[in-house]
């Protein structure tokens, strides 16, 4: 057990980290489908895969963030049976935006502070603008009203959910 949770293994070996990200992404997608309905507020839920994307972008850099965003989005599109590519596009852009805040060697400092929440909020806003713009295209509903109703709520809820990884990192300064 101690080998599995040997943190240094993930810190030093990037392959292990990427495997861990992949497993975590699958796990979060299952959580999203099965359990997130319990904390849905007016059908609005936090986007866990988005938080993972921002995390990867801040830890691994913009390039990895873009790739991670695309793959997480694709995974989300598949498991949520959404239009293929809509989440992939939105999360790719989110990873790209979050990647601008990458600072080598200071990733955990960023994640463990309120800066992480601000990055999440900004990236989530862009993510949701793109996503709900694509979402409302085939509908007669106006984008602005729909975005103000659901996009802003989802952004806020996701930002609130991002508090938990922030607190976890904040309490473990030895990362």
């Amino acid at each position: 057990m101690s080998i599995i949770f040997d943190r240094s293994l993930f810190v030093t070996n990037p392959v292990m980290r990427y495997i861990a990200y992949a497993v975590l992404a699958l796990f979060l997608s299952v959580i999203h489908i099965v359990f997130l309905r319990f904390i849905a507020v007016s059908s609005v839920t936090p986007d866990l895969l988005f938080i993972l994307t921002v995390w990867i972008a801040l830890v691994e850099g913009q390039f990895s963030g873009i790739i991670a965003g695309f793959l997480c989005g694709l995974l989300f599109d598949v498991v949520s049976t959404d239009v293929q590519g809509s989440n992939a596009l939105a999360k790719t852009l989110a990873g790209f935006v979050a990647g601008f805040f990458y600072k080598e060697g200071f990733a955990m400092t960023t994640i463990g502070s309120a800066r992480f929440l601000m990055i999440c909020a900004l990236a989530a806003l862009i993510h949701n603008v793109v996503y709900y713009f694509l979402y409302t295209r085939p509908m007669e509903t106006g984008f602005l009203m729909f975005f103000l109703k659901y996009g802003v709520a989802t952004t806020l809820y996701t930002t609130v959910a991002a508090v938990f990884p922030m607190l976890v990192v904040n309490r473990q300064k030895d990362w």
Partner: peptide
């Protein structure tokens, strides 16, 4: 590239 791929998938359609 990924944006183009996303749009390509969207135009490809749903699952």
């Amino acid at each position: 590239v990924l944006i183009v791929m996303s749009f390509a998938m969207m135009s490809f359609g749903d699952l």
